[in-house]
Design a protein around this nucleic acid. Sequence first.
DNA 1: TTTTTAACCTATCAGTGATAGCCCATTGGG
DNA 2: CCCAATGGGCTATCACTGATAGGTTAAAAA
Lengths: 204, 204
Amino acid sequence: MIRTKALSVRKARGYGPARRMEILNHAMRLIGEHGVQTVSTRQIADAVGISQPSLYAYFPNRQALIEAVCVQAFERLILVMTQVAQTATGLDRLKRLGRAYLMFGFEQPDAYRVGFMIETTGPFDPNQIEPPLLAGLRAYGLHRQALAEHLGPSRTSDEIDRLAQSLWASLHGLVALMIARARFPWAERQALIDTHLDRLLTGL
Amino acid sequence: MIRTKALSVRKARGYGPARRMEILNHAMRLIGEHGVQTVSTRQIADAVGISQPSLYAYFPNRQALIEAVCVQAFERLILVMTQVAQTATGLDRLKRLGRAYLMFGFEQPDAYRVGFMIETTGPFDPNQIEPPLLAGLRAYGLHRQALAEHLGPSRTSDEIDRLAQSLWASLHGLVALMIARARFPWAERQALIDTHLDRLLTGL
DNA sequence: TTTTTAACCTATCAGTGATAGCCCATTGGG
DNA sequence: CCCAATGGGCTATCACTGATAGGTTAAAAA
């Protein structure tokens, strides 16, 4: 992978946050072009026009940088889902939410990959929830809320949790599998999405 | 990660395949202990008791080694699924297959990870199907066949494909998400599995 | 004008996957 | 029985990776 050097002017004092955003935007673009695993910190730094160690003034390590990219991407997913949730109610809302979720995954596979398909490794610190997990929790929360409202107050909380997690997992499964196994002879996408949503929501 | 040196005796001529199996077994164990991403070729070589470059006499690169581990693991999944498929028919068979698939994922998360959650990167060579994709195709084939038999001859092939892929994706989703987001506050596993299978198979 | 410090740099580290090129011991043919 | 062929293995080294140490510069605060 070829890296080209193009220096950026030094940011004035107080403009660190702007630089941070530059880094995130370039990182997002590079990840989209070349994939999460193959993009190196040097490539990102070169794209921004700063030295590689300078990245570490903005992020403690590469993992944190990637997670920040992910969070930025998921702001968009949650925004889309929040808007979609307001356009309908009941089963129709659930269907629109599901479709929005799937489309986000297909249109922004790298964001989705970083958000849900990269495992959070390392020792478990119960005092700190990793940003990607948090983003996932919020997206899940929107599904769960729409499901709870549709099912009505007759179901127990545990029951709703199970159904919402099953639903979310099924949505995730189609996106994740079609991303990870893109060369599989999949059925035509739109028809497959329709079948999937139908199957998941009938009987609820 | 600490590596310890413990030399292995040189294999006699003609015992290359045995050495290859040793490598695969140690690699499988190490991946299970430390995760796919963090296990290095040097750690694997040290565990076997050979030098790191010697691995390249058995596998063209690290990716191929990991894929070979995956294939070995999936032989087991496909064996289990084949056996399970013979114990019942119709909807019950589908349910047992689904449960066997989910249990395999939970009990052998690293095998599952390597098999279905690691993306096959690199340029696409249409003349060569990657081993993990092949393993996935075979596991999918068992689902599809059981589904086709249960649905009867009235459905079109495309329809069966869509339903089978939707079903497979949903199964994959629960395993993949629970592996990738182990710290999420999931519902109790067995109840969640039951709910998931119920939801996926009702209405078929 | 001087001091402080945010923003940045170069040099360097240990670890990674991978390649080049050489040894050594077993084994089959003469 | 000897010896060449070769399968199994080695050391040395490469370019690259993420990360750290420690110094430099320029703009803002005093």
